[in-house]
Measured scan of single mutants.
Amino acid sequence: TTFVALYDYESRTETDLSFKKGERLQIVNNTEGDWWLAHSLSTGQTGYIPSNYVAPS
């Protein structure tokens, strides 16, 4: 499932994924509650993102 970032997010830990508003993200795993494992289609990096910062594209 592809989502789009609603806001900028700066990672707080090394497992988080930083992203910019408008960036497209492929969700890898969304069974972890409020933090989803995502892959950035812009940077190619993978990490955890706050689910309330993204919406379906």
Results as ranks from 00 to 15, higher is better:
Thr1Phe: 15
Thr1Met: 14
Thr2Asp: 11
Thr2Ala: 01
Thr2Ser: 07
Phe3Gly: 04
Val4Asp: 07
Val4Leu: 05
Ala5Leu: 02
Ala5Pro: 01
Leu6Met: 12
Leu6Phe: 03
Tyr7Thr: 04
Tyr7Ser: 09
Tyr7Ala: 13
Tyr7His: 06
Asp8Tyr: 03
Asp8Met: 01
Asp8Pro: 02
Asp8Val: 00
Asp8Gln: 08
Tyr9Trp: 05
Glu10Met: 11
Ser11Lys: 14
Ser11Gln: 10
Arg12Met: 11
Arg12Thr: 14
Arg12Ser: 14
Thr13Met: 14
Thr13Tyr: 11
Thr13Lys: 13
Glu14Ser: 13
Glu14Asn: 15
Glu14Trp: 05
Glu14Gly: 08
Glu14Met: 05
Glu14Pro: 13
Thr15Gly: 13
Asp16Gly: 13
Asp16Pro: 02
Leu17Thr: 04
Leu17Met: 03
Ser18Trp: 02
Phe19Glu: 03
Lys20Asn: 02
Lys20Cys: 08
Lys20Ile: 02
Lys21Ser: 09
Lys21Val: 08
Lys21Cys: 08
Lys21Ala: 13
Lys21Gly: 04
Gly22Glu: 02
Glu23Lys: 01
Glu23Gln: 07
Glu23Val: 00
Glu23Phe: 00
Arg24Ile: 12
Arg24His: 13
Arg24Lys: 13
Leu25Asn: 02
Leu25Arg: 00
Gln26Lys: 15
Gln26Arg: 13
Ile27Gln: 06
Ile27Lys: 06
Ile27Pro: 15
Ile27His: 05
Val28Thr: 04
Val28Tyr: 09
Asn29Tyr: 07
Asn29Glu: 06
Asn30Val: 05
Asn30Ile: 06
Asn30Lys: 07
Asn30Gly: 10
Thr31His: 02
Glu32Met: 15
Glu32Arg: 14
Glu32Pro: 08
Glu32Tyr: 08
Glu32Lys: 15
Glu32Asn: 11
Gly33Lys: 10
Trp35Cys: 12
Trp36His: 06
Trp36Thr: 08
Trp36Leu: 09
Trp36Tyr: 10
Leu37Met: 11
Leu37Gly: 02
Leu37His: 03
Ala38Arg: 00
Ala38Ile: 02
Ala38Pro: 01
Ala38Trp: 00
Ala38Asp: 01
Ser40Ile: 03
Ser40Leu: 12
Ser40Trp: 00
Leu41Gly: 04
Leu41Val: 14
Leu41Asp: 06
Leu41Arg: 09
Leu41Met: 04
Leu41Asn: 13
Ser42Asp: 08
Ser42Ala: 13
Thr43Met: 03
Gly44Thr: 06
Gln45Glu: 15
Gln45Tyr: 06
Thr46Lys: 13
Thr46Gln: 11
Thr46Asn: 15
Gly47Trp: 00
Gly47Val: 00
Gly47Ala: 02
Tyr48Leu: 13
Ile49Asn: 01
Pro50Trp: 06
Pro50Ala: 04
Pro50Cys: 06
Ser51Arg: 05
Ser51Leu: 03
Ser51Phe: 15
Asn52Leu: 11
Asn52Trp: 09
Asn52Gln: 07
Tyr53Arg: 10
Tyr53Asp: 00
Tyr53Val: 08
Tyr53Trp: 07
Val54Tyr: 03
Pro56Glu: 04
Pro56Cys: 09
Pro56Val: 11
Ser57Trp: 04
